[in-house]
Amino acid sequence: MSNVTNLAVVREARRQQEKPNSVGKGFALLHRKIMDTPFYRDAEASHLWVHLLLRANYEPTMVATDYGDIFCDRGEFITGRNSLALETGLTADRVKALLRKFTNLDIITTKSTNRFTVLKVVKYDEYQQFSCPADVQPVSSPNPQPVRRVEDECPADVQRLSTDKEILNTNLISKDIKCASSAENPGKKKPSISCEQVVEVYRRVLPECQGINVITDKRRNLIRTFWQKAGKVTRKLDGHAFGLSDWEAYLTYISRNCRWMLENRPDQRTGKTWRKKALEYFLDVDVYAKAREGAFDDL
């Protein structure tokens, strides 16, 4: 019976794959910001994300299906988890889990029926410009036009990639976090972050967690220590120091994907109650590293 079921899944996926799908031009732009995503080090997740970018329609189109013509806007395409599994080599269950993760990260949306799913890449327009890159046009066009400078028509945030060092220097605060009074140093000073700012982000992003009313010396030391250790992890993963925006992104990921940390849950086996986490728990570099790897995601 399992062989019959597997055969049915393959046939369904192949039928979807054989349907016309207009993908427009023969290239897709891959922004370097993909390296900042929390799933970048997950090979299967990155593979599926790139596949979605390649499958998305470059322009609005009417797709003919067995159920009639379906309109797909730019950045959308018709698919299903079995079809994506066949195309990428992943299992259908893994595709389902990754699509749920992408939805939680607000990078895709899906509209499903009992027959198919229309998947949309949320920021497709932002990173897939109509006129960029220009140096690809002479290769794909039978009548190549003179090559124009890419920066004339590409998004501004693409141009800034060449000046990464200037941007990232604004976040070099691992030794400049001001959790206690200190003497002012003459000359040019690096931007600093206070413990109060760190706690304010914690309160705003994770209001469900245990509250904090006083920043004790122990908590100040925890923040300092965490900032330095998290900086080493972030440099390995992202190539820059740990900043306030990274702290907020870390807690935001927890709020969306690790709900078990934010709830009091009774344990029927032991009779005890699983308590929601507090600030001190998140100021653990091992928790930060494992969260970045997706090890704490809800099942």
Rank of each mutant, 00 (worst) to 15 (best):
E59G: 10
S182M: 10
D176F: 13
A180H: 12
A249W: 10
D246E: 13
R259C: 05
C179A: 09
N257G: 01
R203K: 15
L30S: 10
N143M: 15
R15M: 14
W274K: 07
D176S: 10
V23G: 03
D246M: 06
R149A: 14
S194C: 03
V198F: 07
E44N: 13
V95S: 05
N82C: 09
N221R: 15
M261C: 12
S255M: 00
A289T: 06
A278G: 14
Y67D: 08
V150E: 07
N82M: 07
R292C: 03
K120G: 00
L98G: 02
A92F: 07
Q128I: 06
F39R: 05
P266C: 06
K165S: 11
N3V: 13
A180D: 13
K232M: 11
N3G: 10
K111Q: 12
E87T: 14
T270M: 11
F116P: 01
Y40A: 04
K123M: 06
A28Q: 07
C132N: 12
L119C: 08
K188Q: 12
H47Y: 08
F282M: 08
L29E: 03
H240P: 03
V9L: 11
R220H: 09
K25R: 13
V233E: 01
P144I: 13
K276Q: 14
K33R: 13
E18C: 15
M1S: 14
A64T: 12
A92N: 03
W260L: 08
C132H: 11
D164T: 10
G89M: 08
Y124G: 03
S182K: 13
N114L: 02
L251F: 08
C72H: 04
D135F: 15
V121I: 15
F71P: 09
T65K: 01
K277E: 14
T234N: 13
V10W: 06
D42I: 05
I215F: 14
L99A: 02
T91S: 15
V50G: 04
I212T: 09
H47M: 10
F130D: 15
P186S: 09
Y202G: 09
G243S: 07
I215K: 01
L222G: 14
